[in-house]
């Protein structure tokens, strides 16, 4: 993996790209949960990682919030206990009450995680990550398992929490709607490299009225002499498209690919997974 990435100010950066591109790995390296072979990570003026100089600040001291894909709520603790566990010693207990109120969790404080719905669990996870008042919130596909309504509610909650107290967010996501609703910046990764970065409008819309990035997986193929008709699984739907056979793209059922369509130019790339 080779990535050079800078996030400025209290922005929301969306990391996107096909599965296996290295998004989650990058996020875990920023958190200190995984070690890159070599590299440097700095937060403001603080070096968090500098393999050349043997610096590796453990996750405990990076002052981050991390929201896991599976929420990672502690099953042995109630909602309240989960939040209290996160609260550093001698910190103000009032913050918890305040966050609970914003997140609409006040009624649920005595429940255990298994007594909550997915959306409620995610709200607890997000709230818990903010109890330490981190300057950087890392989120790994936080809303992917929720239904669209709940996704909107949670995205809205994230924005409201940020209005209360600004912090930087790096968010791994596959959801184009989410990128445009939340992100100030989007970075597209592929095969462990950053291939584009900019505002969502710059990355996806600039100079192109019909630009498209499609990530998908091939389901079936039909070959004629001229054309290749592909049925693919794209964003939870089956889509059909046709490409000229002479492109010689090595597609097979199961192949994961990116299709970049910019009006005049179409390019299909196959991804190693």
């Amino acid at each position: 993996m080779e990535v050079d990435l800078t996030v400025t100010g209290h922005r929301i950066l969306a990391l996107t790209g096909p599965s296996g591109a290295g998004k989650t790995t990058l996020l875990r390296q920023i958190a200190g949960l995984a070690m890159p072979e070599s590299g440097r990570i700095t937060f403001g003026k603080d070096p968090w990682l500098d393999t050349a100089n043997g610096i590796h600040v453990p996750p405990q001291q990076r002052h981050i919030g991390f929201v896991f894909q599976d929420y990672a709520l502690f099953p042995n603790m109630t909602v309240m206990q989960n939040l209290e566990f996160a609260l550093p010693k001698y910190h103000n207990q009032e913050l918890i009450g305040h966050l609970l109120e914003i997140a609409g969790l006040t009624q649920l404080i005595d429940r255990k995680p298994h007594q909550l719905s997915g959306g409620q669990q995610q709200r607890v996870a997000l709230t818990r990550a903010l109890v330490r008042e981190p300057d950087l919130l890392l989120m790994d596909e936080p809303f992917a398992a929720l239904d669209p309504d709940m996704q909107l509610q949670l995205q809205d909650l994230l924005l409201r929490l940020r209005r209360e107290r600004p912090f930087t967010v790096i968010l791994v996501t596959h959801d184009m709607g989410e990128i445009f609703r939340l992100a100030d910046q989007v970075a597209i990764m592929e095969n462990g490299r950053l291939i584009r970065i900019g505002s969502p409008a710059e990355v996806y819309l600039k100079d192109q009225t019909e630009a498209l990035f499609i990530y998908g997986e091939v389901l079936t193929l039909e070959r004629t002499t001229e054309m290749l008709t592909v049925h693919a699984w794209v964003d939870g739907k089956i889509r059909q498209f046709t490409v000229p056979t002479h492109w010689g793209v090595q597609l097979q059922p199961g192949t994961k690919f990116t299709l970049h369509y910019s009006g005049a130019d179409v390019e299909v790339r196959i991804l190693k997974t």
Binding site: P59, Q60, R132
Partner: peptide, 8 residues
């Protein structure tokens, strides 16, 4: 990992 990121 969640516990670590919560400073524990």
């Amino acid at each position: 990992e969640a516990s670590y990121t919560l400073g524990k």
